[in-house]
Design a protein around this nucleic acid. Sequence first.
RNA 1: GCCCUCGUAGCUCAGCUGGACAGAGCACCGGACUUCUAAUCCGAUGGUCGCAGGUUCGAAUCCUGCCGAGGGCGCCA
Length: 552
Amino acid sequence: MAAVQFSSTSPVSEPPVIRDVLVSALTDALVAVGVEPPPSGIDIERPANRDHGDWSSNVALARAKAAGRNPRELAGELVAHLAGADVPHVAGVEIAGPGFVNFRLYDTWLYDVLRQVEADGVDGYARLEIAGGQRVLVEFVSANPTGPLHAGHARGAVYGDSLARVLERCGHEVGREYLLNDRGMQMQHFADSIAAAAAGEPTPESGYQGAYIDEWATELPPDVDSLEWAYARCRTEIEATLERLDIHFEYWHSERDMVASGAIEATLADLRAAGVVDDADDAVWLRATDFGDDKDRVLVKSDGEPTYLLPDIAYHRDKFARGWDLLINVWGADHHGYVPRMKAAIQALGHDPDDLEIQVTQLVRLERGGTEVKIGKRSGEFIELAEIIDEVGADATRFTYLLQSIDSQQTIDLAVIASQTMDNPVFYVQMAHARARSIQRKAAETGFASPDAATVDLSPLGHRRELEVLRALSELPDLLGVACRERAPHKVATWVRQLAAAFHGFHHDCYVIGDGIPPELTAARLALVDAARIGLAIGLGLLGVSAPEEMR
RNA sequence: GCCCUCGUAGCUCAGCUGGACAGAGCACCGGACUUCUAAUCCGAUGGUCGCAGGUUCGAAUCCUGCCGAGGGCGCCA
């Protein structure tokens, strides 16, 4: 039975997080040399270059001015003090460059990481509580129910869902919401177009075209309300497509319901009461310029009809009224111009503009084998999202869209991601997970029990490949926190590729079972394989990509 | 004209909210399969981080101005 060096006061083994250990040691050292620790906290980071140690701090650089000493001198004093302190896992401390303090650690710190991963598992490892339960409503997709989801909706759909997953894991209470614009002229045009097609008549003025109109028209039963039928047909289509991507909305918010409830009139009344509304030129205006918008905006047109803006304001008012602390809207780049007026509107209603966050996804250019796939808007020539899923699969669809920051315009070649080759990173990562499973199956067949990570001797682990896997695992909690704060799930995609690369390297160089491998090494490596499996499953789970038992 | 996003290797993109000599994948070149799937691994080649200033001990990262790409600027939704 190996010694367990964790606190005995807690029934759950909770290895000290290395960051806390080092920060605490640095704090002590600063105090010892008579320098006030930085009010913002001490910064610890992993140097990009391994020659600079395992962990590094720039605290001497940051505090040199306040301490009235030059950075290297201060760093030297810190190092001298740290050398005398008995800091767990620390093998050496050095000054480097302009005044960095670099820590060189024993591999034991990575053994703690492995134990932590195993103790916490897929559900618990890198589950953060940095959000304090803040209630966030993520609204995304919200495509008009006048046709199937198309390629243009894909990025927002996948991003919104993965963002929600990241937020949840970081301690937010999260709701996913889809706003259904189920009233208005667009719905009528849509229904008329289907009815016309069913009757063999030409597409009406400002109607919809496209293969789906003709197809759905053939399904239109006689003697039904064409609008209601078309709406239901479309919703079924949209939900089915989202279902294939494993996207599930907790809330489908109907604009009709909102109208019926009188929320729109109530919103206008609120705005009037707030004194931010002007009547001019027979129209009703929101004085948006009072809140940083470029111009004032019409709420009710001179013909007495509300603009789209008023119900939209009512909708956001409703979201807050339902108790959400923070609203995140995922919008396409073609709507970014509406950000200032929406923020102005919620301010006019008395909310903090920061309580509405709008994430804008840049456009995606689609190619097939290097040639752009052209889409014509009105003509109905577009690629349905369902077609993309048919072509490349749900996992590749999600992974590919999540590979890049939403801020960058993305180019996706469908031919490339449809190919199940090395060009396609999703298979690379899934393969890593399947490999881990494969090794575990072999272990079971060979009669190796899965080791208890809390007690197994990990000291046989020391191979460069083994340590790379553990290092990657150690980075996940920090990385997830950044991904959450920056609303950047693509960082998870980048990370999981790194972990997969480390694991493939390990797999290649470190045989686990048989072939003259000593049983102690097999046991330690099996623990590592399971930890890697957990990390891969967490990463893939956040991306909404399946973690397969085997590749076929 | 104004606003938003972007401009990093031949291509597609990272770069952890300023840090130590700029990274990955693909492509190209050269290696590794009696092994838990070679759908893998290793090595080599490849970049004035659009340009010019500024802030800083330190800038791909922050600020300003240009240049270029995409998107947006309705009493349309």
